[in-house]
Design a protein around this nucleic acid. Structure first.
Lengths: 146, 146
DNA sequence: CTTGAAGCTCTAGTCGCTAGAGGAATTAGG
DNA sequence: CCTAATTCCTCTAGCGACTAGAGCTTCAAG
């Protein structure tokens, strides 16, 4: 039985994130000390490590919720878990393809940059002119910092 | 002079998004009709097309804001714009490397899936066991739907 | 002149956290 | 046993980049 800080250190998940996971029901409400502080067990540590690994692999929390509920019923078929992982793989591959296109477009912009004034700047030019870009009208692969 | 719907159709940017861009100062406040409806010019259309292209290339709005302010001063050096694009390229490449690692980990999980019961499921197993994963402790490349 | 599409403002929700305020509890050292 | 430092608590608000919906007004076509 250890407090939240030790759990955080052991799993590499930050303290507020652990509380957030509890709030959204990914982690069970733990026991408390007389002074209302959370006390965790080894079981919860393992559950959180599972979540952490899955997050590292890019699974959204909803998929992790599903995987956890599967792993709580160990006698059943593996097919559902397999399917979730397969879907995640597809997501990752799609995102990679999209990024490869972006990288190439950026590289082309930079390759041809005259390093002169803004008026001749390929970067600005490509972004401003409809005809010069690769013109992929899928969803933007943007946002979301490291 | 045309209304917001036509601007949306012409650029492929949704109507609420256009209003949002105005709200955060990426687009200027347009003229209005007597009945308070927005009226846009060709200039704004081009500005919005620029934003759209840059978003498609994954530039965050703050970088776009900077690029726009650069392109408003066409006599200056291209170096700053070049630098922004270079940074974006680095971001994209880092993200790709991260995704490649995820893809490989997912692929390995699936390759070895016994297709049996949950108890033997490689997917669950890998996520639960610290020792089995590739153990890259960078930030998660997660979230963010298409 | 009526109807239906398109416009308006405003608020709240999405995802997965992160940051901060303002306080209470625990723990290590003296 | 007491103090000081650290950790913990709850709560609210914010990030980026939108998206959705309520409830209303204005415009264009027939």
């Amino acid at each position: 039985m250890f407090p939240i800080g030790r759990l955080a250190k052991a799993t590499g998940v930050k303290v507020p994130t652990i509380r957030y996971y509890e709030q959204i029901g990914l982690l069970p409400e733990p026991e408390r000390t007389a002074g209302n502080q959370r006390l965790y067990t080894q079981g919860t540590l393992e559950r959180l490590a599972f979540i952490r690994h899955a997050r590292d692999l890019g699974f959204p929390l909803e998929a992790i919720r599903e995987l956890l509920s599967l792993s709580d019923r160990p006698g059943q078929s593996c097919a559902a878990a397999d399917e979730i992982a397969r879907r995640q793989l597809a997501v990752v591959e799609a995102r990679m393809a999209r990024l490869a296109a972006l990288r190439d477009a950026l590289q082309r912009m930079l390759d041809h940059c005259a390093s002169g004034t803004i008026a001749d700047c390929r970067v600005i030019e490509v972004l401003g002119d409809h005809g010069l870009c690769a013109h992929d009208h899928g969803a933007a692969e943007a946002g979301h910092p490291a």
